[in-house]
Design a protein around this nucleic acid. Structure first.
Lengths: 338, 338
DNA sequence: CAGCCTAATCTAAACGTTTCGAGGCTGTCA
DNA sequence: TGACAGCCTCGAAACGTTTAGATTAGGCTG
């Protein structure tokens, strides 16, 4: 910029004024400066600018698992909306690990991001402290955390799972295995509570032995499903609390030598683009990923521009049960087993 | 930092010395300073540091489609390796769009990333110019660009597709439809050339009418497959040049009222974690995603630390044909049609 | 005891911007 | 003609670091 000023024979202040059109500059100087810029090939240094302005026009985005299609769909739309608004996105991934999560958040805050969008891997004190200390515009997505009182956009998890469970009950299933996400996540807890509520509404008992923790991971879900399927009273249906885990469940069913839906009915949280073309066509709960991403991005943009109310806004969206054919009415043979 | 210095009763230079252990400091002062840091809760400002040092410890990562599981797998490992090395990752996505790609690269360079890892959406002049002008450590992944002469890690696309095509030919298929990626990508061209080479080796003619461009996108591939399947001489097999497109192909087959593999055999580039549990079990070419990610990250890290040779390094990895059961020997009935 | 060396500490400049306040010029009005 | 307002332009400080080079103190040597 100093060079530009020299070439144009003006002061840096004037150059800055034309670049940011922050002050009136005579047409003559303006053109001289613009020409000098073109000649030198000058690009303003964003770092120096950030230092002076205290703003980076970057928002940190942290998801629990970059490999999960649900998150990538959401990331894609957030990315797009923020980019349109002139913000860059710094993406991190905690791999469902709280330690890693804290490291990454620290890294983002360290880099002075202007805002934060987080799908937390789990409640933890450090996270709370860091967010409070940083006091940045923050929005939680997918999952909430006790004690983090910020904007958020989440699903009505309880209701969605309640619907799905009611559907399975309606097909005559009485023993429905449940592969849960980690219970230190809000989604883990809420989804399970939906299952429980459906059972209760149907006047059925809640059996601990039908619940297994799959930690939202394929591998853990596989082990969990194997246990469920080899237990003395095998469930006639299994509900998986997310998309990654249902793959593990299906592998378990195959490895045990059973078939879905003939021997075991399966339903799952999160939809797949290929679900209605590969068999069994999975019955799932589809999340409005587009809306989630848009709203989250908008919430953070609103706060960034100071257009938000003081009190945190909490958006709750609804899932949609997509019935395909991975669930079947309970057969006589299955009844006999149970 | 000034505050810390005041509290500890020393100069900022000394504080800086203890923070970076860049100069010897007496134990007494060191502990006074450390205490002051704790008391104030001081965190060093990375922006100011970047300005002074001219380094951001951030690398830009740009992929063509964040929604594609192949890319997310690679992104996940790059992320992890770079994080371990103390670098942050700034992720962007071009959505297979050259214009968007240029915007995003400009944004990354503008933010002064220290290095760049790019899976280009396509050859284009602007990209070349920007990369040359920025003269940053750059590594291309998945796809090469004419005229961008940097480190790179790619697959032996030609050979992989040649293997797969030979396999289909071995099953008796003579009319194999080919859904191609965009031909302004190196992967688009190389994969197609593998198909062509296999045909040639088998002494069969290459028919333009069997080739359709699906642009690596599900939607375009769907349209392309519909055309192929409704043509007078319907192919008995279809090869899809990536994972997203094979979904479109399967949807087309279903919508036309055909079945895979009974009526049409299908094989595809890129593997899926669920491929051997949902039917039809897709025959695919699996890419070594872990290795691709690790090598790419390592290449950029090496250059960042100045440990690289002057000449660009080009790593070519091999794919692996995973035979499942979406391809079947050509039946008599199919022969009759053709 | 002067002179020197070493080790610890400090001062101040620099990185590339933005911006505040001051100053200069032009033109208008009394 | 002088006062004043308005518009441009500029100088310089500030953002929070790092670091080269100056300074100081203390110990050793001759």
């Amino acid at each position: 910029m100093l060079d530009v000023a020299k070439v144009a024979g003006v002061s840096v202040a004037t150059v800055s004024a034309v670049i940011n059109s922050s002050a009136p500059v005579s047409p003559e100087l303006r053109s001289r400066i613009e020409q000098a810029i073109g000649q030198i090939g000058y690009k303003r240094n964003a770092i120096a600018r950030s230092l002076k302005l205290g703003t980076t026009r970057t928002v940190g985005l942290m998801v629990a698992d970059i490999t999960n299609p649900f998150f990538t769909d959401v990331v894609a739309v957030i990315q797009e909306v923020l980019h349109r608004a002139g913000y860059a996105v710094m993406l991190c991934c905690s791999d469902e690990d709280v330690i890693l999560q804290d490291e990454q958040i620290a890294l983002l805050i360290d880099r002075s991001v202007d805002g934060l969008i987080i799908a937390p891997a789990g409640d933890d004190e450090t996270l709370k402290r860091m967010i409070a200390a940083a006091s940045l515009p923050t929005v939680l997505i997918d999952r909430l955390c006790d004690g983090i009182d910020t904007d958020a956009v989440v699903l009505d998890n309880r209701r969605a799972v309640q619907d799905a469970t009611r559907y399975m009950l309606g097909l005559g299933h009485r023993r429905i295995g449940y592969i849960s996400g980690a219970l230190d996540t809000s989604t883990g807890r809420e989804r399970l509570s939906g299952y429980r509520a459906a059972l209760e509404a149907a006047g059925l008992p809640f059996e601990e032995s039908l619940i297994r923790i799959g930690n939202f991971r394929e591998k853990d879900a596989y082990t969990a499903a194997i246990q469920l399927l080899t237990s003395p009273e095998r469930p006639t249906g299994i509900f998986s609390a997310n998309n990654l885990m249902v793959i593990g469940v299906m592998k378990a069913i195959r490895d045990i030598g059973l078939r879905c839906p003939d021997d075991v009915s399966v339903a799952s949280f999160d939809d797949f683009p290929w679900a209605d073309v590969f068999q069994p066509h999975l019955t799932t709960i589809a999340q409005p990923v587009q809306a989630i991403g848009e709203q989250a991005a908008q919430l953070v943009l609103d706060r960034l521009s100071g257009a938000s109310p003081e009190t945190p806004r909490r958006l709750v969206l609804q899932g949609r049960l997509v019935i395909r054919d991975s669930c079947r009415p309970v057969s006589l043979a299955q009844r006999a087993i149970a």
